[in-house]
Amino acid sequence: MTVAGIISAILVGLIIGALGRLVVPGRQNIPIWLTIVVGIVAAFIGTAIARGAGVADTNGFDWIEFFIQVGLAALGVLAVTRLGGGHRRLGHR
């Protein structure tokens, strides 16, 4: 993977992770780097699912692939939040 590929993966992960975080209701107390990692993983898995379903390459913007990626990012953010990936302050829930 080239430097440009790594930078683009980080940017896509940031966008997908942020959108996934917006989809999940409530406050998610997880660091931005973890949101980016969740977004990158969701983008790769979402692309694989879309390719497997035959909906990854369409004319124009690939909306189905995009929604799969955002949905996976939302599930990832929710899982990380529920599993204690967020920082909790003492005495607060």
Rank of each mutant, 00 (worst) to 15 (best):
M1C: 08
T2R: 00
T2G: 12
G5Q: 08
G5P: 02
I6T: 08
I6G: 03
I6C: 03
I6S: 05
I7N: 01
S8E: 06
S8L: 07
A9L: 14
A9R: 09
I10G: 02
L11K: 01
L11A: 11
L11G: 07
V12I: 14
G13R: 02
L14A: 04
L14M: 05
L14W: 01
I15A: 02
I16N: 01
G17L: 02
G17F: 00
A18E: 01
A18L: 02
A18Q: 00
L19H: 00
G20R: 02
G20Y: 00
G20T: 01
R21A: 05
L22F: 02
V23N: 02
V23I: 14
V23P: 00
V24T: 11
P25M: 04
P25H: 05
G26S: 11
G26V: 05
G26C: 06
R27D: 07
N29F: 08
P31M: 02
I32L: 10
W33N: 10
W33M: 09
L34Q: 14
T35I: 08
I36G: 00
V38W: 05
V38L: 07
V38G: 01
I40M: 15
A42D: 07
A43P: 07
A43Y: 12
A43D: 14
F44I: 15
F44K: 15
I45C: 12
G46P: 09
G46F: 06
G46K: 07
G46D: 11
A48K: 15
A48P: 09
A48C: 13
I49W: 10
A50F: 10
A50S: 14
A50Q: 08
R51E: 15
R51F: 13
R51Y: 13
R51N: 14
G52N: 09
G52C: 08
G54L: 12
G54R: 11
G54M: 12
G54N: 10
V55N: 11
V55R: 10
V55I: 14
D57T: 13
D57N: 13
T58N: 10
N59P: 09
G60R: 05
F61K: 03
W63S: 12
W63F: 13
W63I: 13
I64F: 11
I64T: 14
I68T: 07
I68A: 06
I68N: 03
Q69W: 03
Q69I: 03
V70T: 07
V70C: 03
G71P: 02
G71W: 06
L72S: 05
L72I: 10
L72R: 06
A73T: 04
A73L: 03
A73S: 11
A74L: 05
L75P: 03
L75N: 03
L75W: 05
G76H: 04
G76Y: 01
G76E: 03
G76S: 07
V77S: 01
L78R: 08
A79F: 15
V80Q: 05
T81F: 08
T81A: 15
T81G: 10
R82Q: 14
L83N: 09
L83P: 04
L83F: 15
G84N: 08
G85M: 09
G85V: 11
G85T: 07
G85K: 04
G86L: 07
G86E: 09
R88W: 10
L90A: 11
L90D: 09
L90H: 11
G91E: 02
R93V: 13
R93K: 12
R93W: 12
